[in-house]
């Protein structure tokens, strides 16, 4: 069989349109995931035992079940509870709930990497805990989790392909549509893989740079 690339050239604008949705969904998911992650970290320090137990249950469920099933649950089960959520939003919710659990672990790791002596020093200067969090802890944690966070974003670009299953027209779904029209499956799948590859490879390079920078910052 010979690959006929003119089909791909023809399909490329459509695929790029889907790529845009893929990026959009993943960006939103990582941003919301960061928010969820911060809330989870704060919640784990809460005085309320029930809240802490709920959070631990949430993390175990997210980490213990396939993302694919989580996506199906959010899309098919939430409407049963009377919540009518469109594809895009339910995709973002599923991805960011999934990401949040992993990001919270990154933040915890980042917090532990900050030497306790720095906080002692801040306290010795009479800084209040809110001020310490804002001026000493947070800036350092952000730098430390930036590399794993870009890695998480790369992961989301890839796992957002699963949203094609609930009919969100992102890159993978677009590819299926293009195949439906052109019936040239091999070329389109290879082109789709190439588009994912370009994005993820570029981000991988960025991550390595950030890791180096963060390592220098950490001394």
């Amino acid at each position: 069989m010979t690959l006929e690339w003119q089909y791909v050239a023809h399909a490329l604008p459509f695929l790029l349109e889907g790529t845009l949705i893929t990026v959009e969904v993943s960006l939103l998911a990582v941003a919301l995931g960061l928010l969820v992650g911060i809330l989870v970290v704060l919640g784990r320090q809460s005085r309320f035992k029930i809240l802490r137990a709920l959070i631990i249950a949430y993390i175990s469920i997210v980490r213990g079940t396939p993302l694919f099933i989580q996506i199906l649950i959010v899309y098919y089960a939430l409407p049963a509870l009377g919540l009518d959520i469109p594809r895009f939003e339910s995709g973002v919710i599923a991805l960011s709930l999934n990401s949040g659990a992993y990001i919270s672990e990154m933040i915890r790791g980042g917090l532990m990497a900050i030497p306790k002596g720095q906080l002692d020093a801040a306290r010795a200067f009479g800084m209040r805990s809110g001020l310490i969090w804002r001026r000493i802890t947070l800036p350092q944690v952000l730098v430390l989790i930036l590399p794993p966070l870009t890695m998480e974003f790369t992961g989301l670009l890839k796992s957002s392909a699963l949203l094609s299953v609930i009919g969100l027209v992102e890159l993978t779904r677009r590819a299926q549509q293009v195949i439906g029209e052109t019936l040239r499956s091999p070329e389109v799948w290879l082109a789709t893989a190439a588009l994912y590859f370009i994005m993820c490879f570029a981000l991988g390079t960025v991550t390595r740079r950030l890791e180096k920078a963060a390592a220098a910052y950490r001394l």
Partner: peptide, 13 residues
């Protein structure tokens, strides 16, 4: 790099 930088679903396809 190819395997790491593409979605598993797309690899399956």
């Amino acid at each position: 790099e190819i395997v790491r930088d593409t979605p598993f679903l797309v690899q399956v396809f």
